[in-house]
Design a protein around this nucleic acid. Structure first.
Lengths: 144, 144
DNA sequence: GTATATACTTGTATTATACAAGTGGAAAGA
DNA sequence: TCTTTCCACTTGTATAATACAAGTATATAC
């Protein structure tokens, strides 16, 4: 890989991170905080049968982190914790109707934000950027 | 812009942010914390004549945030604050030799990390990703 | 010469994260 | 069976980067 491309990615990644931090730290987008959004999204698309442990593995986050996020979502009524009938220690997390509505509303706001940012972009650029982002994120999983 | 591309970018951006947060929060890269790196980089490439205020404007960060980052860099001996001869309130920040060395070392480590992640990527993909990232970051500045 | 504006610092709060210790149920070995 | 070890989860504590608000000292304007 060309040195110049590496340099650019390295620097721009740092800039992007700083910008995202600044934007998201104090402004909740909609009614979900940034962390809970991805958790809710995950639960919604998984049809709801996963416990804290499984999710923290997939997210590569500490269990305690996911535990708190789940507690936060539950306190807002966005998910319910259904006790596992077999294993008394475990739960499965399921999204509620309120949760679904909130997720949808949130997603919309976020997408509008992205859309606004990409106003001047061509169709091709947008598609490429999305795919490269996805590919980049996937590289993190490769290492274990 | 196609709805699908927007969706992808929105989701992958959130995932990327979570991952970067997790990676960078507890592991300093080299001997600089993540925030100070960009400040030092900026000071280095600007040949050193900018004050806290000017930098915070460019970075779109609060003055207090940049003030603390600068104090941190100064305490490590990476920058010096030269009092403005005309304006008694103002300083200009200049990188020291130690600072230059630290920046360079840090940059190297970061670039190796990126290089490692992009091992399987083609030349073209890397170049495109870098340029699209840069373009995306630039969109934030457009709005003011 | 007083009032206002500006550059910067410092106090305090917030967020998402990790690590460590604790709780209570499950599984395995004697 | 019962004791030990393991596992899912929760809770306490620390950390880092940010913002807002209040404070300090200097500059500028009237």
């Amino acid at each position: 890989m060309d040195k110049h491309s590496i340099e650019t990615i390295e620097l721009e990644m740092a800039v992007l991170f700083r910008r995202l931090t600044s934007i998201t730290t104090f402004k909740k987008i909609g009614n979900l905080d940034r962390a809970a959004y991805l958790l809710l999204h995950h639960i919604a698309s998984r049809e709801g049968t996963a416990g804290i442990k499984a999710i923290s593995d997939e997210f590569q986050l500490d269990i305690s982190t996911v535990s708190r996020q789940a507690a936060s979502l539950e306190s807002k009524g966005y998910i319910t914790r259904v006790p596992d009938p077999v294993d008394g220690r475990a739960y499965s997390l399921q999204i509620t109707e309120t949760g679904k509505a909130s997720l949808e509303e949130n997603r919309q706001v976020r997408q509008e934000m992205i859309e606004q940012l990409l106003k001047g972009w061509s169709e091709e650029e947008g598609q490429l950027f999305g795919e490269l982002l996805r590919k980049f994120n996937a590289t993190f999983l490769g290492e274990g």
